[in-house]
């Protein structure tokens, strides 16, 4: 089963996304902030990370940069989820090392497509 790590501090949004993704057949683990996410990745490697950018303790950008620095998690696919909708916000997320970016409110089918794209790319690369 494909495991996704959802990093999201807003309880409502976390609950909603977890349930919707679970219905699509993903195994979801959730974290509320960047530190927690890093700890969880250390423990068990997920297949993909969905990360909100405005997080307490350690924000999404910093968390993503840290993931890219670590050889173990260097290639771990990350999709940024954020309510910041400006073009430069997207660039900021990509610069921090995110593989893709989606704006809230989330277009769910598009999110699924993005997840599948990244996962298939990962299998192609044979990681």
């Amino acid at each position: 089963m494909i495991q996704l790590l959802l990093v999201e501090d807003n309880e409502m949004n976390r609950d909603m996304l977890t349930r919707r993704l679970e219905r699509k057949g993903f195994d979801i683990v959730a974290a509320g902030d960047g530190e927690q996410a890093l700890a969880m990745i250390e423990e068990s490697m997920p297949d993909l990370v969905l990360m909100d950018m405005n997080l307490p303790i350690k924000n999404g950008w910093a968390t993503c940069q840290e993931l890219r620095k670590n050889p173990r998690t260097e290639k771990l696919p990350v999709i940024a989820l954020t309510a910041h909708a400006m073009a430069e916000d997207k660039q900021k997320a990509l610069d921090a090392g995110c593989d893709d970016y989606t704006t809230k409110p989330i277009d769910f089918p598009l999110l699924i497509q993005k997840i599948e794209n990244l996962l298939s790319k990962k299998t192609e690369l044979g990681v």
Binding site: N10, M12, N13, M16, L17, R19, R20, N54, A83, H84, A85, M86, T103, K104, P105, I106, F108
Partner: peptide, 17 residues
């Protein structure tokens, strides 16, 4: 825009669900 999108995300998400 950011502040409006956050509650909208929940509204749209839950409704779709």
């Amino acid at each position: 825009s950011h502040e409006l999108r956050t509650p909208l995300n929940a509204i749209i998400g839950y409704s779709e669900m």
